[in-house]
Amino acid sequence: MEKFDKVHGVAAPMPLINIDTDMIIPKVHLKTIKRSGLGVVLFDEMRYHDHGGENEEFVLNKPAYRNTEILVAGDNFGCGSSREHAPWAIKDFGIKVVISTSFADIFFNNCFKNGILPIVVEEEHHAILMDDAHKGENARMTVHLEDQKITTSDGVEIEFDIDPHRKHCLLNGLDDIGLSMEKEHHIDKFEEHASQARPWV
């Protein structure tokens, strides 16, 4: 996985709460057997009209936000299904950071597996970041993972929390499976014990 360091770019505002995984990527696009190429259908039903053609009103279709790398979204972002196609589409579009007041559990986990940084902030900080995102192209935000800090276009600094293990993995682009396989002897030992304690499993 690519190493995550710092993102300096335009942030797009999506204040709607409860943006679910069907909105992020509708099921018609889950029929792929690949992980790549889903960026064009990110937010498909909001982004395109029923008959095809872009919906100009949708934030990512506005000139200022076409190359956005940061999303500032409403509460409970990513609720719904476990489909990893959601973070795959977000990543493929070019978004590397999603900021909200809360995320759905499975989506949140899935982000880290794909080099996306989901950041949870307090409501008051969320309001500042949402305002900044509304400023468009000339307002660039910086997200600095090492320092756990977001800097708005006005220079306001907002700190955020992140699980140290997940931070380490993102910063170094580490593959979970490889790391876990290094602990294989613990798994062997557990299996040996469990097969005695619960042989019916």
Partner: peptide
């Protein structure tokens, strides 16, 4: 509980 595809692989 539900998991994503990377976790399925894990």
């Amino acid at each position: 509980h539900g998991i994503g595809t990377s976790e399925v692989e894990h």
